Computed example of a mutant assay.
Amino acid sequence: MSSALPASNPDILAHVEQFWEGRKPRSPIYQFLLGDVSFIHASKGLVRARLLLTNNHVNAHGGIHGSVSATIVDWVGGMAVAAWDNRVKTGVSTDIHISYQSTAKDGEWVEIEGKANKVGRSLAFTTATIWKVVDDKPGPVIATGSHTKFLSV
């Protein structure tokens, strides 16, 4: 289950939403898979969002595709870095690790959390969690990930 969140900061939330709206049209894969994602929380280095899964998100067995989870971990790591200090350059991926634990299906909601654990001059280290939403709250963990970003680009 999720831990208590710090209060959402309206200025950081506005920055992350604006950053996302500017980035989304320049990334066809993000636009295709995450075009309908909605932010529900932002504070320093922490973002939460929700996404309704569609047929575009699932594999042949009907569960969220592993590549979709990987894309989400990649995306939310950048969003967490943007939330760290309202930056507009979030770097490039150097490493992504994902552990798959459960699933969600077409028509189900997922909640996504990205946390920037450390943001330095050249590297940022983030973690991500994807939950299935149950009774409008984060339920079973679908996947967790860690993501390292090279910032000096």
Rank of each mutant, 00 (worst) to 15 (best):
S2R: 13
S2A: 15
S3A: 03
A4Y: 00
L5E: 10
P6G: 11
P6N: 08
A7N: 09
S8F: 10
S8Y: 10
N9D: 15
N9L: 11
D11K: 08
I12M: 05
L13R: 01
A14V: 07
A14Y: 13
A14W: 07
H15G: 14
Q18F: 07
E21T: 08
G22I: 07
R23V: 13
K24G: 07
K24R: 11
P25S: 12
R26N: 14
S27E: 12
S27F: 08
Q31F: 12
L34I: 10
D36S: 11
S38E: 11
F39D: 00
I40Q: 14
H41G: 08
K44S: 08
L46T: 09
L46Q: 10
A49W: 01
R50S: 09
L51A: 04
N56T: 02
H57Q: 14
H57I: 04
V58L: 07
A60Y: 02
A60N: 03
H61W: 09
G62N: 07
G63A: 08
G63D: 03
H65K: 04
G66A: 00
S67I: 12
S67A: 15
V68H: 02
I72S: 04
I72F: 10
I72L: 13
D74N: 14
W75M: 13
M79W: 01
A80Q: 04
A82M: 08
W84H: 14
D85T: 13
D85A: 15
G91E: 00
G91T: 04
S93E: 14
D95P: 03
I96A: 10
H97K: 09
K105A: 09
G107K: 07
E108G: 09
W109S: 03
V110I: 15
E111M: 14
E111I: 12
E113D: 11
A116G: 02
N117G: 15
K118I: 15
G120Y: 11
G120S: 04
R121F: 11
S122T: 15
A124S: 08
T127E: 15
T129H: 05
I130S: 03
W131K: 06
D136H: 07
P140H: 07
V141N: 03
V141S: 02
I142P: 01
I142N: 01
S146M: 14
H147P: 01
F150Q: 14
F150M: 14
L151P: 00
